[in-house]
Amino acid sequence: MLVFGHLGITLLFAFIVFSSLKEKLDYRFVLAGAPLPQNGRIFGHTMLFALALAGMGMYLNKRRGIGAVEALALGSLLHIAEDQMWLAQGTLFWPLLGWEFPKYDIENYAGYIIYALLHEPRAYVPEILGIAILATFILYFKLYRPERIRLFISRGSL
């Protein structure tokens, strides 16, 4: 997955879960956390990174009532799940399984991304799905209206 797949699918999952729990969630930080691990599948794709964010979020929430870092952690953790990082356990459980990250043999990364988006369903299907989800949220919550987008930007609520 690239950017839109992570944003849309993470937003939809968080919305379904937190709406059913009737819990408020700052969706700005969930959306900021969704692409956060995109760094070449190293530190940001580790469980340590997600747990560190969650730990900081729980500490800040207990001390100051801040839930933003927890929302970042949620977005980051969902990104790791969406990337199926359990298949790359050396990265997921770093440094427990060793200090080095697996090497990826991709010389022309930009060319690979373009090729994958044009030819591989595992790349373009999540991106199209993510764009469709984001468009649906924009239309359903009327985020095209200036007052609604201002409310989202200032409070993170839909």
Rank of each mutant, 00 (worst) to 15 (best):
F18D: 09
F18W: 11
F18T: 10
F18V: 04
S19K: 15
S19L: 07
S19H: 14
S20M: 15
K22T: 05
K22S: 13
E23N: 11
E23D: 02
E23V: 12
K24T: 15
K24R: 15
L25M: 15
Y27P: 12
Y27W: 12
Y27S: 11
F29N: 08
V30Y: 08
V30W: 03
L31Q: 06
L31P: 10
A32H: 00
A34N: 03
A34M: 12
L36F: 13
P37E: 04
P37F: 01
N39V: 01
R41H: 00
I42F: 10
I42S: 09
H45D: 00
H45L: 01
T46L: 00
M47V: 07
L48Q: 06
L48V: 08
F49P: 04
F49Y: 15
F49K: 02
A52L: 12
A52S: 08
A52R: 04
L53A: 03
A54D: 03
G55L: 15
M56D: 09
M56H: 09
M56T: 13
G57H: 08
M58P: 02
Y59M: 11
Y59V: 14
L60N: 06
N61M: 13
N61T: 04
K62G: 08
R63P: 01
R63C: 05
R64V: 08
G65N: 02
I66P: 00
I66E: 11
I66G: 04
G67M: 09
V69K: 06
V69C: 08
E70H: 04
E70D: 04
E70L: 12
E70A: 05
A71G: 12
L72T: 00
L72W: 05
G75C: 05
S76L: 07
S76P: 07
L77A: 15
L77T: 15
L78Y: 09
L78I: 15
L78Q: 07
H79R: 07
H79Y: 02
A81R: 00
A81D: 08
A81W: 04
A81L: 15
E82R: 04
D83Y: 01
D83Q: 04
M85L: 12
M85D: 12
M85W: 11
M85R: 00
W86C: 01
L87R: 06
A88S: 10
Q89P: 04
G90E: 15
T91N: 06
T91M: 10
L92F: 03
F93S: 10
W94G: 02
W94Q: 05
L97F: 12
G98D: 01
E100V: 09
E100Q: 11
E100P: 00
F101G: 08
F101E: 07
P102W: 01
K103S: 06
Y104I: 04
D105H: 07
E107Q: 10
E107N: 11
E107C: 01
Y109C: 00
Y109F: 02
Y109I: 02
G111V: 10
G111R: 02
Y112M: 07
I114R: 12
I114L: 15
Y115I: 03
L117S: 01
L117M: 10
L117Q: 14
L118F: 12
H119P: 05
H119V: 07
E120S: 03
